[in-house]
Design a protein around this nucleic acid. Structure first.
Lengths: 341, 341
DNA sequence: CTGAAAGCGCTAACAG
DNA sequence: CTGTTAGCGCTTTCAG
């Protein structure tokens, strides 16, 4: 029956015949040492008996720290993101923080979403958002809000970030293909306004150059979005070239699946006619036909690193902005094969 | 420079020469009608100029409503969940709520996580958690916390829920197979302590019975978890039976991929030797080899329906607990084929 | 229509 | 070691 509203610190105090602040101290690990052990025990017992729970909103109002972290995601449903998110939330949860996840694609402007998060008093932000136009970042900096980037880096490199080594990843892909004898390698590049797109492209170009391949033999087609359909279109353009590539490396797995689609359209077989390499090692790309050779990135670690970075930022005032770069790994499967030529 | 902390309602009031409560009224859509239009305009202008943002924690403390909703997920990284989550958060965001997502698998007990959410003052909970042991549900009810289930129903059916029609889905699968001439159909059943596992199994059994197939010809193997490995083991057991099935319907796509693995182990070809049907239509199951015939469930809609249900629960006191059931859809791809016999 | 006053639940000085 | 006091930023009576 006693569907009474949540008990407060006052109720506990009354039941123990002590002052509310004593209860507050007894229940706070940091201040517990200021209260007699027997009293503290009595208080804890009473709190348990009453089913007392700390009211974080009240605490936050008082202390100015909410224990809330905002995560801005480009698209929650993107299969690449969940592992990152999981890494973020797990670490944050373990440290007593709760995570508010916002999907940027859907509602309102990013600015707006950030403002709503600020209104909720978030202690910091993890940005996994696609486009790093300065305005959002600037907006956060203006608000003196700790911010870290995940799976992204900003152009100026002024924000802490946790990301995979995109350049090294592309090098892995290109060198694998070159070792297989491929001389004509195309690249389906991701959106150039996001760091993964730009850096992977740069990595591709540097690697093919280092391998001694000419630009003519290493064409690049850029997409506007990381979608399977965009990958298909770009690959079709690549395949229509005078000098047809014998291998294509895509800026991510979704794009690579689009490359598969394009190959099917053209009646070409993978890997027989064209080898394909993806990037990210999304769940189940080992099950597609043929199993996709790809660059595995440490998504969960990335999320965890970002969380750790953010917490450090929140704790220490202005530690030099750190960039955590995670090593990628080549996963060889069935979509790459030695070149016939 | 003025990196001053966030302006409050008081700052705005001072700047306008009015009382803080007037500012509060002017800025609250519901109370705006109590303040002169010109004053309201002046206040809004000043608020904008100062970059004032409402402090939700303070508001929540006062009103008792936080505008926060908790979502308990079994495993964020499970590829089936993101679309549901996205449906939930989008709808909630649009209604001004923020969503705290908690991964149950990782830290602490579910009870604990719920308590932490309660401490944060959530206005309600969406439970997408696997096991519906009464204790968690009871715990929420005791706390008088509005709760809805998504992709799950509780045994007693006392909680509002949004879920796919699992029985109908299995009927779709079985009838498809029967129409193809299959007479020996096995089922890899999901965990029986979660509603999808139990209901899909029930749906399977009812459907094969209605199709006139005997129990001997429709063996069932149950797994303890929705994993690819578990699906593989269960399928191996099914294939080792005296009467080998010519088709297997799995309780979900992950399990179905495990069935693929088992088939490969046994040197059997899908669909030639054994047809396979999945459930859920996870992203990219159209790309595996062979493309998986499956039952598509309306995941995004499910999330949205759950959000709507929860909001209704929060608004209206005790509306009769509603069950939204979404119609599934058979997606025929390459993993099912007419039976030779 | 606007001001005054009180208080949501908690913590952080400051006394004692 | 414990009680007192004040106040975080906001809403909401109650007056006027």
């Amino acid at each position: 029956m006693a569907a009474a509203s949540r008990p407060t610190i006052k109720d506990v105090a009354a039941r123990c015949g002590v002052h509310p602040s004593t209860v507050s101290r007894a229940l706070s690990p940091a201040m517990k040492h200021l209260v007699a052990d027997d009293v503290a025990d009595r208080i804890k017992a009473a709190a348990n008996a009453l089913g007392y729970r700390l009211n974080m909103a009240a605490k936050g109002l008082r202390t100015g720290r909410s224990g809330l972290i905002g995560v801005l995601a480009p698209d929650i449903a993107d299969p690449g993101f969940p592992p990152v998110l999981s890494g973020i939330t797990d670490h944050l949860n373990a440290e007593g923080y709760a995570t508010i996840v916002v999907d940027v694609g859907s509602n309102g402007s990013e600015q707006d979403l950030v403002d709503r998060l600020i209104a909720r008093g978030v202690d910091g932000l993890v940005l996994a958002t696609v486009t790093l136009r300065d305005d959002v970042v600037k907006h956060c900096l203006d608000a003196a809000l700790p911010v870290v980037l995940v799976n992204r880096v900003d152009a100026a490199g002024q924000l802490p970030s946790a990301a995979s080594d995109d350049v090294a990843g592309m090098r892995l892909a290109v060198e694998h293909l070159v070792a297989l004898g491929h001389q004509r390698i195309g690249h389906v590049a991701g959106p150039q306004h996001v760091s993964t797109g730009a850096r992977r492209r740069a990595g591709f170009e540097a690697s093919v150059r280092d391998a001694g391949l000419s630009a003519r033999h290493t064409p690049v087609e850029t997409v506007e979005a990381y979608t399977r359909a965009a990958g298909r279109e770009a690959a079709l353009r690549l395949l229509a070239r005078r000098i047809r590539p014998t291998a294509i490396v895509a800026a991510n797995d979704l794009l690579a699946l689009g490359v598969y689609d394009a190959l099917a359209v053209r009646g070409l077989a993978c890997p027989h006619d064209v080898s394909v390499v993806g990037h990210n090692d999304m769940p189940f790309v080992d099950m597609v036909a043929p199993p996709l050779t790809t660059i595995r990135i440490a998504q969960r670690d990335m999320g965890e690193a970002a969380a750790r970075l953010l917490l450090a930022r929140i704790a220490g005032p202005e530690a030099a902005s750190e960039h955590i770069v995670l090593a990628p790994q080549l996963i060889i499967r069935g979509s790459t094969i030695a070149c016939g030529h």
